[in-house]
C-alpha cells in the first residue's frame, strides 16, 4: 500500500513537471518571422524561400501562415499547445482572424494545422487532415521535414488565395498535387518564358496590369467575410487573458481549436 502511494506521488509529480516544462517552453517562444525553425529542420536557402513566399501570401491575401518546428513539446499535448501558441503570437489579423499555424514537433513525431476563426470556412477540419495526409506525412516518413512543411504551407496558401479570389504571383517553393485545391497551381501566371519581342512584352505588361487590377478589386471585396459555413460568434472581449495579444510580425488573430493533427 505504501509503495502505491509513492508511485502515485511520483506520477503526479512527473505529470506536473511535464505540464510546467511545456508551459515554460511555450512562454519562451518568440516568432522568427513566418518560419520559426526551432528544430533546425530547414536549410538556410529553403527557409528564406518559404519565408519570402509566405510574405507574398500575406501581402496579397492578408492571411498570415506561420510555420513552426520544435524538437519536442516537453510533455505538452499538441492540440492544446498549438492553440496556446496561436493565441500567444496572435497569428492572423485582429478581427479577421485569418491566421494558420503549421506546427511540427519533430522528436515527438506530431504535426498539427491550427486554423484561425476567419479561415474555418475555407479550411474545414477534413481538408486540413487531407493536406497532412497527402502533402506532409508522406515526406515526414522519409525524414524530409522541411520539404513536408513547405508542401503543406503551399497547399494552405493556394487554398487561402483561392478563397480570397487572388492569384498568387510568387512562384510556390514546392509543387503540390492539384486535387486539394481543385485549381492548377498558381505558378503558371508569371513564370512562363516571357518573349523578348515588343509585342510579347506588351502582352505581358497588359496581363500584368489586369492581374493587379483584379487583385485590387477582389482583394478588397473578399476581406469582408470568408467565414463560410461556421457561424460562430467571435467574442472580442478578452476573457481569461489568454487570447488576443500579438508579438513579432503577427497581428493579433485568434483560433478556436479548428484544424487537424497527425502523427507519423
Amino acid at each position: 500500500m505504501k509503495h502505491r502511494f509513492w508511485i502515485i506521488l511520483a506520477l503526479v509529480a512527473a505529470a506536473f513537471h511535464a505540464a510546467t516544462a511545456s508551459e515554460a517552453l511555450l512562454n519562451g517562444l518568440q516568432p522568427q518571422g513566418f518560419v520559426s525553425d526551432y528544430a533546425g529542420s530547414f536549410e538556410e536557402a529553403a527557409r528564406t524561400n518559404l519565408e519570402s513566399y509566405l510574405q507574398d501570401v500575406k501581402r496579397q491575401t492578408g492571411a498570415e501562415i506561420a510555420v513552426v518546428t520544435l524538437k519536442s513539446l516537453d510533455g505538452g499535448e499538441i492540440n492544446d499547445f498549438a492553440n496556446r501558441l496561436f493565441a500567444k503570437w496572435g497569428i492572423g489579423q485582429k478581427g479577421e482572424d485569418n491566421g494558420i499555424l503549421l506546427l511540427a514537433a519533430v522528436e515527438d513525431r506530431k504535426v498539427r494545422i491550427e486554423v484561425g476563426y476567419g479561415l474555418e470556412g475555407a479550411l474545414p477540419d477534413a481538408k486540413t487532415g487531407r493536406i497532412l495526409d497527402e502533402e506532409v506525412i508522406p515526406l515526414f516518413k522519409e525524414n524530409r521535414y522541411a520539404e513536408g512543411l513547405t508542401h503543406g504551407a503551399v497547399a494552405i496558401a493556394l487554398i487561402v488565395a483561392q478563397e480570397a479570389g487572388v492569384t498568387l504571383t510568387a512562384p510556390p517553393p514546392a509543387q503540390i498535387s492539384m486535387s486539394l485545391t481543385g485549381a492548377p497551381p498558381a505558378a503558371a501566371s508569371t513564370d512562363t518564358g516571357i518573349p523578348a519581342g515588343g509585342i510579347g512584352a506588351l502582352v505581358f505588361v497588359g496581363v500584368f496590369l489586369v492581374i493587379i487590377f483584379l487583385i485590387a478589386i477582389f482583394g478588397k471585396k473578399s476581406k469582408g467575410g470568408s467565414s463560410g459555413s461556421s457561424s460562430r460568434p467571435r467574442s472580442s472581449s478578452s476573457g481569461g487573458g489568454s487570447r488576443g495579444g500579438s508579438s513579432g510580425g503577427f497581428s493579433g488573430g485568434s483560433s478556436g481549436g479548428g484544424g487537424a493533427s497527425r502523427s507519423w
Partner: peptide
Amino acid sequence: QDELAGTENRIAVE
C-alpha cells in the same frame, strides 16, 4: 472523423 476530432478539440479549447 477529422470533423469530429476538430469539434472535440474546439470543445476542449472553449
